[in-house]
């Protein structure tokens, strides 16, 4: 049985980390095997659980593990792998010149969300035995780029494959005329493009499947509401639906009718404000015990 993937997204400061931590602790108490993954480069789970985390998952309880994704690690690893492959196939001078480019490439736009995608694939691969994987996502901009990446990549790859196929077809014509149809060598680039398309289609299916559930965290204020609305629009453009709205930091008897009206198609969860703050595993457990109804519709 594949793990359920819960993504906690939203504007910076609304309480994604706290909501995802509470959800992970609740699920683990059911008891379901749960992994909480911090995908926010500005990691907060270490503050919430009051312990350090790293790329290696750490056991917090019998059924709960927590890990932090290090995007620098993934970028460095990826560039290193590509450099090694290039050294095998390029002439010495070209490979030597490329090394200089790589030192700059690590800052390229697009690499950060790609690193998150690599970490995401690695997590799915290594923790397929979990019942739930809860992702505490980065603030909106990076998260939207992360979700869009498979879709944008597929558009590029399909165009490149069309062009490459056209080139190969013409080369075959030349071969037939010039050397009486002797077979030209198989195009490795075309094969690689086809393989990449397969990978990204698989990734896209993950994001569109029922096992992916997006939880949009927001507060009951105008800015948070506007951003939540824009996030929903952007996700709709790439056919990703929002499963649940988490209205966080609610004071006693606050009116949330506006939010509930706007997000009629989504489940709604209301998390009461904890003025004393929520840090420490036991504090999280107590909060859950006192606010059970907020976690019933996960």
């Amino acid at each position: 049985m594949k793990p359920q993937l819960l993504f906690f997204i939203g504007k910076g400061g609304v309480g994604k980390s706290t909501s995802s931590a509470l959800t992970a602790v609740y699920l683990a108490s059911q008891p379901r095997q749960t992994l909480l993954v911090s995908m926010d480069p500005a990691h907060n789970q270490c503050d919430i659980f009051e312990q350090d985390f790293s790329e290696k998952p750490k056991k917090v309880s019998e059924t709960l593990m927590v890990k932090e994704v290090n995007t620098d690690f993934w970028i460095e690893r990826y560039l290193k792998e590509t450099t090694n492959q290039i050294k095998e196939t390029y002439r010495y001078e070209s490979a030597f010149n490329l090394q200089n480019y790589f030192n700059v490439l690590q800052f390229s736009p697009g690499l950060e969300e790609y690193a998150l995608l690599l970490a995401f694939e690695d997590t799915l691969h290594k923790h397929a035995d979990r019942d739930f994987i809860v992702f505490d996502m980065a603030p909106t901009a990076l998260t939207l780029r992360f979700f869009s990446l498979p879709f944008i990549t597929l558009i590029w790859l399909e165009e490149l494959l069309t062009l490459r196929s056209e080139i190969y077809r013409k080369k075959e014509i030349i071969s037939k005329i010039k050397i009486a149809g002797r077979e030209i060598e198989q195009d490795r680039v075309k094969a690689k493009l086809q393989s990449l398309i397969g990978n990204y289609e698989h990734l896209r299916e993950h994001f569109l499947s029922d096992t992916t559930r997006v939880n949009l965290v927001m507060n009951n204020d105008k800015l948070s509401f506007s951003e939540a609305f824009r996030i929903r629009e952007k996700l709709t453009d790439i056919s990703i639906g929002i499963d649940r709205i988490v209205i966080n930091k609610l004071k006693e008897d606050e009116n949330t009718a506006g939010i509930e009206n706007e997000f009629k198609d989504q489940k709604i969860a209301k998390l009461r404000l904890a003025p004393e703050g929520l840090t420490g595993y036991d504090v999280l457990k107590n909060y859950i015990a006192e606010n059970q109804e907020a976690f019933q519709n996960i």
Partner: peptide, 19 residues
């Protein structure tokens, strides 16, 4: 262009095109 990860995936196979 394109998204940098596409460049990186194909780069090892495109030494001729690079030259």
């Amino acid at each position: 262009s394109p998204p940098i990860h596409i460049t990186m995936e194909l780069l090892p196979l495109m030494n001729k095109e690079f030259d």
